[in-house]
Design a protein around this nucleic acid. Structure first.
Lengths: 151, 151
DNA sequence: TCTTGACCTAAAGTTAGGTTTAGAAATTAC
DNA sequence: GTAATTTCTAAACCTAACTTTAGGTCAAGA
């Protein structure tokens, strides 16, 4: 086998720790774009290992797949990303992470306040601040305090 | 209407900001247990407002409904919870939150290290530490690095 | 060559946390 | 007393992020 035939999906799965089905799913979501060999099978570059690694890390940081897709668009399309390219977009992740930590710490401080005052049920409690609420966790519809649709 | 007839589900929904359907769902998940009036309709105590408030807050902190159910079991079953009871279980939340913040901060530090070394694809990268991975976000099956089922 | 094992697609299933819908019964308002 | 609200149950639907299944093709080794 020649050096530049690329990785088959199974090999990529083994190297990244991802399931084969997950890699196909990521392709469907536009996160990765392999080419096809003569028989129609997917072939990947070695740089794609790094790309998927980035996807996994960004997920841990709470980014959704569409968000990750956007971030990855910042990579150069015309050449294999360099370490510097990766450092650049990782810096963006760092900002995102800082924000999440910040939100949680504010939440914690508010909880401390509420433990003190026992106001758990009061609408004016800071824990009900809509800014801190919703869209931070999980999936599916959420219409929480102040997030309800108009009508 | 007598004082102690209890709240109807719609009233509870208005006071908590939750959807009626969500309240019924929480009941199905064992988070709240109303009684029924003669006509079979749900009736709630005013203390349940506080109970649902706690549920919402705990959700923001990233607890799942089963986890919240466990926490709520620590409340006294034989009487209406006092402010002190609520303070006690809120303290448990605080511990949970501290842990989450800790994890995120460690993640951030590791990212800094990786930005420095560009090791994004190396299995030895600290960002791949299984302890930090999985079960922290979102729903659905996740078999990530080291989390794969045996066979 | 033949036989595994890897790969393909499309569609359906899964989980969490709910919402929506439908048709019927209870309550409330006038 | 009747109309308008609420509430009831059960079942289907929703999203995100995948996995599983079914039925068929490709590739590699003996």
């Amino acid at each position: 086998m020649a050096v530049s035939e690329g990785l088959a999906i199974g090999a990529l799965a083994r190297r990244t720790g991802l399931a084969v089905s997950a890699i196909r799913y990521y392709e469907a979501q536009g996160l990765i774009s392999p080419w096809r060999n003569a028989g129609g099978q997917r072939r990947y570059q070695r740089a794609d290992i790094r790309r998927l690694s980035f996807v996994m890390i960004a997920q841990q940081f709470g980014l959704t797949l569409p968000e990750i897709r956007e971030v990855l668009l910042e990579l150069p399309g015309n050449r294999t990303p360099t370490p510097q390219d990766w450092k650049n977009i990782s810096a963006g992740l760092r900002a995102h992470l800082d924000q999440r930590i910040d939100t949680l710490m504010r939440l914690r401080d508010n909880l401390d306040g509420c433990i003190g005052c026992g106001c758990l049920s009061l609408p004016k409690c800071k824990l009900y601040n809509p800014d801190d609420r919703a869209k931070s966790h999980g999936s599916g519809p959420r219409y929480l305090m102040g997030d309800a649709p108009e009508a």
